[in-house]
Amino acid sequence: MNSRISFQDVVKTFPLKGAEFTALDGVSLDIADQEFVTVVGPSGCGKSTLMSMAAGLQEPSSGRVLVDGRPVTGPGPDRGVIFQQYALFPWLTVRQNVEFGLKLAAVPTQERRRRAAEAITLVGLDDFADALPKTLSGGMKQRCAIARAYAVDPQVLLMDEPFGALDALTRVQLQDQLLATWSREKRTVLFITHDVDEAVYLASRVVVMAARPGRIHRVVDVDLPYPRTEEIRLSADFRQIRNAVWTSVYHQESTAPAA
């Protein structure tokens, strides 16, 4: 497998009340080029820490995180990061928000405008390109954040519960739009979620994490065809995979060493 992202025996510890808390313990995972992988698990299992290290926002205590075979040493334009919080500049329009990363990268004005316009069209916000964030719904704000990430043309998208704050209907709509965009653009996606149905619906593989210490409990292959549809979501095959992931998340046997 040609790995785009590789976690190699990653350990992450934090100081906690004079002791050491192990957030991740010996995590190894390879994500292939153009693969869509979701990560799900109980609270405190290190999902967001895993993504932060791939983004270059945190460093492993030991082990390595590689992107395209190179160690991650910090943030970079090859990785687009999308959080649950939209993190839009309220004084900038949708177009200006989407152009922001390109402006920082000193992309010439004409090229910047072209790439921003393509990204805005990709997420269906053409009619709102000159709107300020305060006039947008939550779903529109998240689409703007996704467009901003796409505009810098990253090969990897790192998404940390991006739909977690949205209502159920908007969430499903954005799941479908994200998959439609991914099917055209074929980025490598690492998607963190606490929602089992979302994890199964989006991914080709679901990584189930276990907590305290954070580690990979199970990897579940999602043998369902793309494009994903409402019929697939309601199918017996979907329910079977969803139940397997649900059981792995919420009925884990403790594998922690005895005290």
Rank of each mutant, 00 (worst) to 15 (best):
2 N>I: 14
3 S>K: 12
5 I>A: 07
5 I>H: 03
7 F>E: 03
10 V>H: 09
12 K>M: 05
12 K>Q: 08
15 P>E: 11
16 L>E: 13
16 L>Q: 13
21 F>P: 05
24 L>N: 09
27 V>L: 15
32 A>L: 07
33 D>M: 07
34 Q>V: 03
35 E>C: 03
35 E>P: 05
35 E>D: 11
39 V>A: 00
40 V>I: 09
42 P>R: 11
43 S>V: 11
44 G>I: 03
45 C>D: 06
46 G>Y: 02
46 G>T: 06
48 S>P: 04
48 S>Y: 03
49 T>Y: 02
50 L>V: 06
57 L>K: 01
58 Q>M: 14
59 E>L: 08
59 E>A: 13
62 S>F: 05
67 V>Y: 01
67 V>W: 01
69 G>A: 10
69 G>T: 12
70 R>I: 12
70 R>A: 15
75 P>W: 10
76 G>V: 02
80 G>R: 00
85 Q>V: 04
86 Y>E: 05
89 F>A: 02
90 P>M: 12
91 W>V: 10
92 L>E: 09
96 Q>T: 04
96 Q>E: 15
97 N>M: 11
97 N>E: 09
104 L>A: 14
104 L>C: 14
111 E>V: 11
112 R>S: 09
112 R>C: 10
113 R>P: 02
114 R>H: 03
116 A>M: 06
118 E>H: 08
123 V>I: 07
126 D>R: 04
129 A>D: 11
130 D>V: 03
131 A>K: 09
133 P>I: 07
134 K>N: 15
139 G>I: 06
142 Q>E: 12
148 R>K: 09
152 V>R: 02
153 D>K: 11
154 P>G: 01
154 P>F: 00
157 L>D: 00
164 G>V: 07
164 G>F: 05
166 L>H: 02
167 D>Y: 03
170 T>D: 06
171 R>A: 08
173 Q>R: 14
178 L>W: 04
178 L>G: 00
181 T>D: 04
182 W>H: 03
184 R>Q: 12
184 R>F: 02
185 E>Q: 10
186 K>R: 15
187 R>Q: 05
190 L>K: 00
196 V>E: 04
197 D>V: 09
197 D>S: 14
198 E>K: 08
201 Y>C: 06
203 A>G: 05
204 S>F: 04
207 V>F: 10
207 V>S: 05
208 V>L: 09
209 M>V: 06
211 A>P: 08
212 R>P: 01
217 H>V: 04
218 R>L: 14
224 L>G: 01
225 P>E: 01
226 Y>F: 13
229 T>P: 06
233 R>P: 04
235 S>I: 07
235 S>K: 10
238 F>G: 09
242 R>K: 15
244 A>F: 09
248 S>Q: 14
252 Q>E: 12
255 T>V: 15
256 A>P: 01
256 A>L: 14
